[in-house]
């Protein structure tokens, strides 16, 4: 469904994404697991086409189409959407309005179902503004609900668990599974091994490169052993990164 080939991004003479290769298959939940500063959100922005994030080189092919030159709107119209890590708050826009804008003209019934799926009582939230009166966790859940209302072909979820309390986490996970069951492929970007347990496949990201891809349990274990204890976290030296990539390939 999505093929990312040899993607590079340089900003201010710094390589942020470094020859990244990634494939998201149709119907799968694909986790991207990485520590802070490894390029997770940048990858999400590149795929969504966010302003200021244009690849230096490389290709992104979605359903056979090169999306590199498309705007955010055009990519959304092709079927890609993003649940932001820190979603914007928009004064005067109610939850009902926001979810209604999310494509497909979902009616109140569908909007209410989507809110239910993320553990939010529709009657309490439908007429609330998505402004600063919402807590961070509430706003995140509304973001996920809006993705559910849109039902994109590919949903990019950037750190969907950040700001979510421990009680709401199982509801969130079951919501993501439901979104997948309803037909959306999911690229879930996270630093949490718990979150990727629901993925079909997981890729480990470090310093803008995918180090390896495999089943969730195996990748989580590899991530724990190699990334969480890595002395070069956030800024791995090139030789250390080469070693990790080599090690990953040898382990295969």
């Amino acid at each position: 469904m999505l093929q990312v080939d040899e993607l590079f991004l340089e900003l201010d003479n710094k390589t942020i994404i470094n020859g990244l290769n990634l494939e998201v298959k149709k119907g799968e939940i694909h986790g991207v697991l990485g520590e802070n500063g490894t390029g997770k959100t940048t990858l999400a922005y590149l795929i969504m086409g966010v302003n200021g994030y244009k690849p230096t080189s490389g290709k992104m092919i979605f359903e056979g189409k090169d999306i590199g030159g498309l705007s955010v709107s055009q990519r959304a119209q092709e079927g890609i959407s993003l649940a932001w890590q820190e979603p914007a708050r928009i004064e005067g826009l109610t939850v009902r309005d926001y979810l209604s804008l999310s494509g497909n003209n979902p009616g109140v019934k569908r909007i209410s179902e989507c809110l239910d799926m993320v553990g939010m009582e529709p009657l309490r939230y439908l007429e609330r503004d998505i402004d600063s009166t919402l807590s961070g966790g509430e706003r995140k859940r509304i973001e996920l609900a809006s993705i559910m209302a849109m039902q994109p072909r590919l949903a990019i979820l950037d750190e969907p668990d950040s700001g979510i309390d421990i009680v709401s986490l199982p509801i969130l996970l079951s919501g993501i599974l439901e979104l997948n069951r309803q037909g959306s492929s999911i690229l879930m970007i996270t630093h949490s091994e718990q979150m990727v347990e629901i993925a079909h496949r997981v890729s480990v990201l470090c310093a803008g490169s995918i180090l390896r891809t495999g089943p969730p349990e195996e990748m989580s274990s590899w991530f724990k052993d190699n990334c969480q204890s890595c002395a070069h976290i956030n800024e791995p030296m090139l030789e250390a990164l080469s070693e990790l990539i080599k090690k990953g390939k040898n382990d295969d």
Partner: peptide, 8 residues
């Protein structure tokens, strides 16, 4: 861009 990511 938040709204554009929904197709507007």
């Amino acid at each position: 861009e938040t709204l554009m990511a929904r197709g507007l």
